[in-house]
């Protein structure tokens, strides 16, 4: 099979969409399914939680076509490497896939990553054959360490999870892009379509978001906006923007002006 143009390859799998979408916080499973469809995403994140023994047995996966999407189970809510590793092992058993979004949180208020625990967990998981996509700080040193450990991508935050503040430090993202060779995916912080486009224009391989879509007044419309923004941002990056200049540069010819 020849590789089609401009696809994203993670862990040996090829994807045409560069938008990854979470499945939390939607009003219903129907809405989740419609938003996913509209987003064009091929990788979707899920969380691992206890089966609720008292309630209806209806589950998210009843609404998701598993032939269409690659599940990316997360370790949300884990504050230690041990808990994150345990969650990943359970996820692999439940989903029969090696893909994991590894997050080890350091603090409940900011949900910033605990990079020390993150590195510890990444090392164990890579050794156990997982395809590890770590949510991390926008710190090139941490990203390089994660790459060296064998992570399949790095996923620096644009801003705190669910904050919608956008890409707060585009220069850090640029430095990461210049210094790691695995795909760089901005994970967390995106609030609007322009934020997603900015991440892509910086040269990121993809963007991962949940709240920006699920929390929008019309999640289905926002899912489409994000799909288009990621495509537009990617095209803009590849097209190569003009340099920024302080003064004007006329677009119309100066010759032939009426006298």
């Amino acid at each position: 099979m020849t590789q089609s143009a401009d696809t994203l390859i993670i862990g040996g799998r090829e994807f045409t969409s560069r938008l990854m979408v979470g499945t939390g916080k939607y009003a219903s499973f129907e809405q989740t399914a419609r938003a996913l469809e509209m987003s064009g995403a091929q990788i979707i994140t899920v969380a691992v939680r206890r089966v609720n023994l008292d309630r209806s047995k209806e589950s998210l996966l009843d609404y998701i076509d598993l032939k269409k999407y690659t599940l990316l189970p997360n370790t949300a809510g884990c504050y230690t490497a041990d808990d994150a590793v345990r969650t990943c092992r359970l996820a692999r058993e439940a989903g029969m896939s090696d893909f994991v979004k590894l997050e080890v949180l350091g603090d409940e208020k900011t949900l910033f990553p605990d990079n020390e625990e993150l590195l510890k967990a990444a090392k164990i998981l890579v050794a156990e054959g997982f395809t590890v996509l770590p949510y991390c700080s926008d710190d090139v040193i941490v990203c390089k360490k994660l790459e060296d450990l064998g992570c399949a991508a790095v996923m620096p935050l644009g801003a705190p999870i669910g904050s919608g503040l956008g890409i707060r430090n585009p220069y850090n993202i640029r430095i990461i892009l210049e210094n790691v060779s695995v795909p760089v995916i901005v994970d967390a912080g995106v609030g609007s379509a322009s934020d997603a486009a900015i991440a892509m224009e910086l040269g990121c391989a993809g963007v991962l978001m949940n709240t920006a879509i699920a929390g929008a007044q019309d999640p289905i419309a926002m899912a489409e906006a994000m799909k288009l923004a990621v495509i537009a941002g990617r095209l803009s990056y590849k097209a190569g923007r003009i340099p920024r200049k302080l003064y004007a540069n006329a677009s119309s010819p100066l010759d032939g002006m009426i006298g």
């Binding site: 979470g22 916080k25 899920v46 969380a47 691992v48 589950s59 996966l61 999870i161 709240t211």
Partner: peptide
């Protein structure tokens, strides 16, 4: 492992966790 479900008997005091995927980011 799933292949062991039918041959793994439980004992008094065992701690069992049953998990699945739910919506998350």
């Amino acid at each position: 492992p799933k292949v062991d479900y039918d041959r793994r008997p439980l004992s008094d005091g065992d701690k069992i966790e049953i998990v699945h995927f739910v919506g998350g980011g």
